[in-house]
């Protein structure tokens, strides 16, 4: 009996060794397919303008509110452009952030400091750094690009009654703060419902949940609410999209240093 068990076990092991490279490749291909489909379904949105509240909470539950306005422009064949203006707290009012995401190169980022009217180029190397001291990192705010990750399909799973693909994404950029991101993507609309982020030590860092998805232009799903909780610090951030408009009159000229200086 015992021997038989051992033999079966080693046979299974051999089988696993033979089969797994194939299935691994399959999972990688399927993961990429899902990511491609997700990207494809979101292509063509053009431009948008949004008003957003950011509620920061420390581990004791003290809240701090930030208000931001953002303009975004889809760039064909490259990452998106965005211009974000901070309205709250009052001392940073008028501070603005211009970002050009790129697929291959490092992102370009500028900060406008209204008190001295200075546009300052900043390093985009702070990907893992907190955006406005929130639990969102800069890299969470930049556009989703296939070349930035390696994908791996893990399993199917129901999340909140929705059939989802569970896909693992490994960032290719060595400056990313994550070793992997596990995403729950709903099978019907390819919307990300939940992300789990693992830090450089491969420990679970934070969970982001998207809720209150709305359909725009009959095609594009956007969550009106994103919640991130940092499991290591107990801090959390809610991003509440108050308003978002698509097909706004924006072009390249609205995303340069001059327009950055002009925003109020």
């Amino acid at each position: 009996m015992l021997n038989l068990k051992r033999i079966t076990a080693s046979l299974l092991l051999v089988a696993a060794l033979v089969i797994s490279p194939l299935s691994l490749a399959d999972d990688a291909a399927k993961g990429l397919e899902i990511a491609k489909e997700r990207k494809a379904r979101d292509a063509g949105w053009g431009s948008s303008e949004s008003d957003t509240l950011m509620v920061l909470r420390d581990a004791q539950g003290n809240e701090s509110v930030r208000a931001i306005r953002a303009k975004a422009l889809e760039v064909k064949g490259d990452g998106d452009k965005s211009l974000t203006v901070f309205d709250q707290p009052a001392d940073v009012k008028g501070t603005a952030f211009l970002s050009f995401s790129h697929i291959e190169d490092a992102d370009e980022q500028w900060l406008y400091l209204p008190a001295i009217k200075r546009v300052k180029r900043i390093s985009s190397n702070n990907k893992s750094g907190p955006f406005m001291s929130s639990e969102f990192a800069y890299e969470d705010m930049s556009s989703f690009e296939l070349a930035k990750y390696k994908f791996n399909y893990l399993r199917d799973e129901k999340l909140n009654g929705l059939d989802c693909f569970v896909v693992e994404a490994t960032p290719t950029d060595r400056f990313s703060g994550y070793t992997k991101i596990i995403s729950w993507i709903d099978k019907q609309h390819y919307r990300v419902m939940k992300n789990e982020f693992y830090d450089r030590k491969k420990a679970l860092l934070k969970t982001m949940t998207m809720s209150d998805y709305q359909l725009y232009l009959d095609k594009y799903w956007r969550p009106k609410r994103l919640d991130v909780i940092n499991h290591q610090t107990g801090k959390s951030t809610s991003l509440i999209v108050k308003q978002i408009n698509f097909n706004v009159d924006l072009d390249d000229n609205d995303f340069n240093k001059n327009s950055l200086k002009r925003v109020r």
């Binding site: 509240l53 208000a67 306005r69 934070k206 969970t207 609410r225 919640d227 509440i240 108050k242």
Partner: peptide, 20 residues
């Protein structure tokens, strides 16, 4: 324990944006 998905459901709908 920290529960990742429990959202704070504070109603922020009355917040008036400076823009508005």
């Amino acid at each position: 324990t920290p529960v990742s998905s429990v959202s704070d459901t504070t109603d922020y709908s009355n917040y008036v944006f400076p823009e508005e």
